[in-house]
């Protein structure tokens, strides 16, 4: 039983298996969605149905996800798994993504220019810039230049 559990845990670590399962789930959901909507709410033949193309996509995605799973099983068998290249700094990317989300939310509360200045200051500091005068100058100038360039000159509406 323990050997089985270990095997399963090893298998699930293979990226192709994870992705194959995820895409297979997506394919199944799309298939169900297309069938339910076509059969349930549309009184059209399949040839005109708006759910025909999604149905085909679901089938193709299902086949490809099975091929990914097969590749994952093959990799597991040959122990090609786990060769992580270099140091991943993905946490930094996620933090920047979260800053951007906060920026998006802040813009609704305090308008474009103050939100942009805040976002730039926090991002510059987080990414390792330590010269405070540069951070201040760049944040202020970028926010105002962008505002002037887009809003005033190019007539592009800003958030």
């Amino acid at each position: 039983m323990k050997a089985h559990d270990r095997d399963f845990r090893e298998l699930i670590k293979v990226s192709e298996i994870q992705e194959g399962l995820l895409f297979f789930l997506c394919a199944a959901l799309l298939l169900v969605y297309s069938l339910v909507n076509h059969l349930g709410s549309i009184s059209l033949e399949w040839k005109l149905s708006p759910y025909l193309f999604p149905l085909l996509i679901a089938i193709c995605l299902g086949v490809l996800s099975v091929s990914l799973l097969a590749e994952g099983f093959r990799k597991k068998g040959t122990e090609e798994v786990g060769a992580k290249k270099g140091v991943s700094l993905w946490k930094r990317s996620i933090c920047i993504f979260l800053f951007a989300i906060c920026y998006f939310l802040l813009m609704n509360l305090i308008t474009f220019i103050p939100a942009t200045i805040l976002f730039l200051i926090v991002s510059f500091l987080y990414l390792g810039e330590r010269r405070l005068w540069l951070i201040g100058a760049l944040s202020l100038s970028t926010a105002f230049i962008v505002y002037f360039l887009f809003d005033v000159m190019l007539h592009v509406m800003l958030p």
Binding site: I96, A100, Y103, F104, M107, T116, F119, L120, S123, F124, L127, G128, E129, L134, L138, T142, A143, V146, F150, V156, M157, L158, P159
Partner: peptide, 16 residues
């Protein structure tokens, strides 16, 4: 570290 946050602002403007 200087360039990327500025591009981020441009992405937001571009999408909006």
């Amino acid at each position: 570290r200087i360039l990327l946050p500025i591009v981020g602002v441009l992405c937001v403007i571009g999408a909006f």
